[in-house]
Design a protein around this nucleic acid. Structure first.
Lengths: 221, 221
DNA sequence: AGTATACAGGAACATCTGTTTTATGTCAAA
DNA sequence: TTTGACATAAAACAGATGTTCCTGTATACT
């Protein structure tokens, strides 16, 4: 299980330096300049942590471009850079007994739907435009550690990689479920987040991937 | 000196392109990228005009640095907006076996701690300054529908009202727990979020309210 | 004409800079 | 203990990028 994107001291240092550097120079630092400042002797380590920051949603990078990075998040102690509010479409509800009804063209339904604010860290490396949110109805997903009223953030996709938390529609059971996806030979194993529940083995024909679960938000009273 | 009409059409084009490029990408264009956009086949010509723009005071350059230029003047089409994001201090971790360690003065620890962005909806009616966040360590709070890696948003308070989700320190058990708070005569009843678990009855002396749980955030891979 | 200046183009060059590969140490889970 | 994920390093590599030198054109001035 991957922990919430909490930054190491080194990554925080890098982020602070990059932000200050951009503000002072008007262009981002190179990998080696970051390494010098943060006392990192190896460019690959800087590169490694830079990619971590991308995953965490703090920066974006352009491949093979010198100084090709931009700070998208806000760093403590720094004045905010240009930051568009991250908004995700709340397109509907999800319950066990119903399939996830996704409009083929999400953008088409924008004006009649709600939007919610989501921190960049909860979107991972994905863009807000390809992500949507569902409100969970009922307690049928307790085995996924998700309860009534939770907001699930998903990215629409029909395939999944091992370890992904996915929203799957089980045709035979007429049930929507959120579980971790693993391919086991010809079968698919779905593991619940709560270890107190048993994994489920299904044939691919019975399991339709609806999306990848990126995050969950829950607000108490 | 800052007279737009003094510049050749080519230089104006370059200036417009560079400004737009920085706004879109977060970093300046290379000499060759400028050349492609402005239909200049030779890098030396771009370099020549770039130096002209430096003389005219529109930009600054750093020698021998990739994309080492910054736009210093305000060119038509620039905007600056500063909207303070909602930031909450991530002051530490929470695990079952340890008390929640809260600094008496949260603000005092700002510089050494992490900050996370939180959507306003997860803060309820409370202000970001009186709220803090904890990273959950371990799976000891499964009965509260909270798992390893989750981020819990809390408001610091020593009392609670019926129905509040609270973080409580059970002295006798040396355990931190997140449960719903109810006063039952002289006793306190703590109800887990997961109905599969049993409520807990404790005497007030054994139950120390540490804060009110406002929300939970969880990020998968 | 002759010269100076501003501007433009091409190509070679040096090095700046991101990427990849391989190896090492740490730490927690099995 | 063994395993594997994660973080860290060092070095070699390939590509991106600024610099420089040389040449050519057009215009204005003496």
């Amino acid at each position: 299980m991957k922990e919430f994107h909490r930054l190491s001291a080194r990554q925080q240092h890098m982020l602070r330096f990059m932000t200050a550097f951009v503000r002072e120079n008007g262009y981002p630092p190179s990998i080696r300049e970051i390494g010098d400042e943060c006392l990192i002797g190896s460019t690959s380590v800087v590169n490694y942590n830079l990619n971590k920051l991308v995953e965490a949603g703090y920066i974006q990078r352009s491949d093979r471009v010198s100084r090709g990075l931009r700070i998208v998040g806000d760093i403590p102690g720094m004045q905010a850079e240009t930051k568009p509010p991250l908004q995700v479409a709340l397109v509907g509800r999800i319950a066990a007994g119903e399939p996830i009804s996704l409009p083929d063209d999400i953008a088409h339904h924008i004006d009649e739907d709600d939007y919610i604010n989501v921190p960049p860290a909860l979107l991972g490396k994905y863009d807000a435009s390809e992500v949507f949110a569902l409100a969970v109805r009922g307690d049928s997903m307790i085995d996924a550690m998700i309860q009534n009223g939770d907001i699930v953030i998903l990215r629409r996709q029909n395939t999944a990689e091992n370890g992904d938390m996915v929203a799957a529609w089980l045709k035979e059971d007429s049930e929507t479920t959120l579980k971790r996806f693993y391919r086991r030979g010809d079968m698919i194993e779905l593991q619940p987040a709560n270890p107190a529940y048993q994994p489920l083995q299904v044939v691919p024909e019975n399991c339709e991937i609806k999306g990848k679960v990126l995050s969950v938000m829950r607000a108490y009273a």
